[in-house]
Design a protein around this nucleic acid. Sequence first.
DNA 1: GTCCATTAGTTGGATGTCATAGCATTCAGG
DNA 2: CCTGAATGCTATGACATCCAACTAATGGAC
Lengths: 165, 165
Amino acid sequence: MTTLHRDPIEAAHQNWVEHGWAGAADGMVAITSLMRAQQIALARVEAVLKPMGVTFSRYELLMLLVFSKRGALPMSVVSSRLQVHQSSVTNAVDRLEGAGLVSRLPHPEDRRATLVEITQAGRSLAAEATDRLNAEVFGDLGLSDDDITDLVRILTTMRRSAGDF
Amino acid sequence: MTTLHRDPIEAAHQNWVEHGWAGAADGMVAITSLMRAQQIALARVEAVLKPMGVTFSRYELLMLLVFSKRGALPMSVVSSRLQVHQSSVTNAVDRLEGAGLVSRLPHPEDRRATLVEITQAGRSLAAEATDRLNAEVFGDLGLSDDDITDLVRILTTMRRSAGDF
DNA sequence: GTCCATTAGTTGGATGTCATAGCATTCAGG
DNA sequence: CCTGAATGCTATGACATCCAACTAATGGAC
């Protein structure tokens, strides 16, 4: 057995066990791995999107509009679908609107609400960004098909257990 | 088979396939699931830590010091172990120092460097926070032991593939 | 009909991350 | 030695997220 653990997470597991927290060590490692893997994945995605002038959160918002029937949704719907705070949507739409990728429109039936509509430029950029992400990130995660299937299944279990859907 | 898919991620998978991106759909779902699961896990952890006056990133820094032999490490070491930018460490140490949980000390051998040392108050808070996290989060992720094992294995594969360690 | 709770969105403040630039110190090469 | 490259840390700015407070509009209760 090797005593050299280069992986900081494996080292943390050892520390947890040595301090008498063996019962929670696996859960701690799972959470820590999740955080770190997300950090890495996000960095890869952002690296692809940065040259195009958008961030991942703005890309997500664009894709949500692309998949909507009319290319437009109320801010509140965007917020609930993306699972982010209302004010985060306000922020993202401000920037996307400034870049000409979406437009704000008054809701025809509810004067409180605002519709966000994707522009032609927004659709073009979203299509191009998706092609690049599919090719450079989503298509090559460094995992086998079985691992990807298992990963999604386990994370889905975890999300459902937390009441995500 | 149900046609009602409440899970936004499952809905996104359908959209990806319908737009001819079936080849990358599984990878996209994996990344999206990862992002969302991390968001949920972080929220759970922060909810436990918030009443104690610390955030997860500051907690991680404290635990790193707890596990160090002398309870003190150079800023640069903290940065590399936690895998965050130097300036993020400066920020976190500023706040921890303000709360009396760590102290900055001049490095005895290298006047460029600064040691971060955990205080007694820092150790107490870290111990208390760990007990709560172990009990309320790490010990109950809503996953079976086998799922946790598989999750960690897959995420480790992914991290290693990305050159994380 | 009128009043109040709810909903929609924005604004401002706090926190965290990264990138870049700048200052101080260390270390190596000539 | 002495100069230039590399290292350690901090300051500033750009983004994203959340929360709390505030404005505006809707809609139900009476």
